[in-house]
């Protein structure tokens, strides 16, 4: 049993310090999209809405509505956005109000 005992000693070193500090490996977690407002036109928005498998993106006239609760961070919108969407890096999304997970993003006017 000595073999287990020695290995047990490492525990203290690997345990996360969260919430005091955030582990660096979390940078590789998939996260919901963030958008570049200057390039987020209605045409682009529709393309993103179309590709989202989770119903997390909805077009509401001049707004793009992102539901962080439904978003599975699948990356499909980012893949088709040609750089308009990127991974937000945000994973601490817990909330007591479902409504706080709904983000409304103003679309850029298509004129010009």
């Amino acid at each position: 049993m000595a073999v287990w005992f020695l290995r047990g000693l490492r525990r203290g070193v690997i345990t996360t310090r969260y919430p005091k500090a955030i582990d660096s490996w979390t940078a590789s977690l998939p996260t919901p999209p963030a958008f570049d407002a200057r390039r987020l036109t209605p045409a682009v928005a529709d393309r993103l809405v179309d590709v989202c498998p989770s119903g997390a993106l909805i077009r509401d006239y001049e707004w793009l509505v992102l539901d962080l609760g439904a978003c599975t961070a699948c990356g499909r919108c980012i893949a088709v956005s040609r750089g308009v969407a990127r991974s937000s890096g945000a994973f601490e999304l817990s909330t007591t109000e479902r409504g706080r997970l709904i983000k409304r993003i103003r679309l850029r006017d298509d004129v010009r």
């Binding site: 969260y18 979390t26 609760g69 961070a73 994973f91 601490e92 817990s94 997970l101």
Partner: peptide
Amino acid sequence: FIPGCPPSPLALLQ
């Protein structure tokens, strides 16, 4: 509510 598919253990802790 804890979003994520899946929420990572750190997201669960939060």
